[in-house]
Amino acid sequence: MKFDKPVTGGPCWTELGTDDLEGAKRFYAELFGWRPETDPRQEAGGYTVAHIGDAAVAAITPRYQESQPVAWNVSFAVTDADATARLVEEAGGTVAVGPMDIFDVGRFSVALDPTGAAFQLWEARDFPGAGLLNAPGALGWVELATRDTSRARTFYTTIFGWSTEGSEWYTEFTVGGQEFGGMADMGDRYPAEVPAHWLPYFAVEDVDATAQAAVAAGGAVRAGPMTVPDGPRIAVLTDPQGAAFGVFRAAEEG
């Protein structure tokens, strides 16, 4: 990721929906050094913001609906959530939740792209999103896995004005000339029942040590660790509840 703070059209936040809030807080605190703070208000529903130092970097929340998977979600910054939600539908996507106000901090919506991948829209008010990006323990890359890369490319470039570049097997997304994520064809690498999805990658100082720590804390290694040709060292891990996320060596993304 080539920017260190949220920019319009780029990823600005990531949050985990889980069935074990306390377990997730312990796991990620151990893995990334996060300091979790749970909003005490009943209406906040257990929403927990993780910090590195004073910077908010991610959220951990209970699942709010039975249909919601245990998974990480990625939010993209927009200037007008309602207008973008309408554009999502015009471009063949689906608006699943909202847009709606979240206290006085912003306006929020959950959408599905035409290939089935869920993502979130965030119109900032008092809360702009992550206070730290692309640093150890913070979000540094996002990746879309889909079975229809052509349709997804058309959709996201229409919605967010992204540009694309890259190879036949991997597409990189840029906003304002700055790389922040990519897209890979799921092909036969995933079971047929696994839907298209966005995966957040967190920067770490040592990918191999982080993978070992994840396993020791009750998680698992799904892929890697491996070094991407002309790219960073990465791994895809799962937490003890099965939520997948990626890690990469800090300052080596893109």
Rank of each mutant, 00 (worst) to 15 (best):
L121R: 10
L121A: 08
W122V: 07
W122E: 08
E123K: 01
A124Y: 02
R125H: 12
R125I: 00
D126L: 07
F127V: 04
P128D: 02
P128R: 12
G129I: 04
A130H: 09
A130S: 14
G131S: 02
L133W: 10
N134K: 04
N134Q: 13
A135S: 12
P136D: 00
P136K: 05
L139S: 11
L139G: 11
W141C: 15
W141G: 04
W141E: 09
V142P: 00
E143Q: 09
E143W: 12
L144D: 12
L144P: 06
L144A: 05
A145V: 07
R147W: 06
D148S: 10
D148R: 08
A152R: 04
A152T: 04
R153Q: 10
T154R: 13
T154H: 14
F155C: 06
F155Q: 03
T157S: 12
T157A: 07
T157D: 07
W162I: 02
S163N: 06
S163K: 03
T164A: 14
T164W: 10
T164S: 11
E165T: 12
E168S: 09
E168V: 11
Y170D: 00
Y170F: 15
V175N: 08
V175F: 05
G177E: 12
Q178A: 09
Q178V: 14
F180D: 05
G181E: 03
G181P: 06
A184W: 02
A184V: 09
D185F: 15
D188A: 01
D188W: 11
Y190N: 00
Y190L: 02
P191R: 11
P191N: 09
P191D: 04
P191L: 03
A192H: 08
E193L: 00
V194W: 12
P195I: 07
A196Y: 13
A196P: 07
H197K: 04
W198H: 11
L199I: 09
L199C: 03
L199T: 15
Y201A: 08
F202K: 00
A203Q: 03
A203M: 02
V204K: 04
V204I: 08
D206N: 15
D206W: 02
V207C: 05
T210V: 14
A211W: 05
A211E: 02
A211D: 09
Q212G: 05
A213S: 14
V215H: 03
A216W: 04
G218N: 00
G218K: 06
G219T: 10
A220P: 06
V221Q: 01
V221G: 00
R222E: 11
R222M: 09
R222Y: 13
A223I: 04
M226A: 15
M226V: 13
T227C: 02
P229E: 01
P229T: 14
P229R: 07
D230E: 12
G231R: 05
P232N: 08
R233V: 04
I234F: 10
I234N: 02
I234C: 04
A235Y: 08
L237H: 13
L237K: 01
T238E: 13
D239W: 13
D239C: 05
D239V: 14
D239E: 15
D239A: 13
Q241S: 15
G242C: 04
A243I: 07
A244E: 14
A244W: 09
A244K: 03
F245S: 05
G246F: 13
G246L: 06
V247R: 01
F248P: 10
R249N: 06
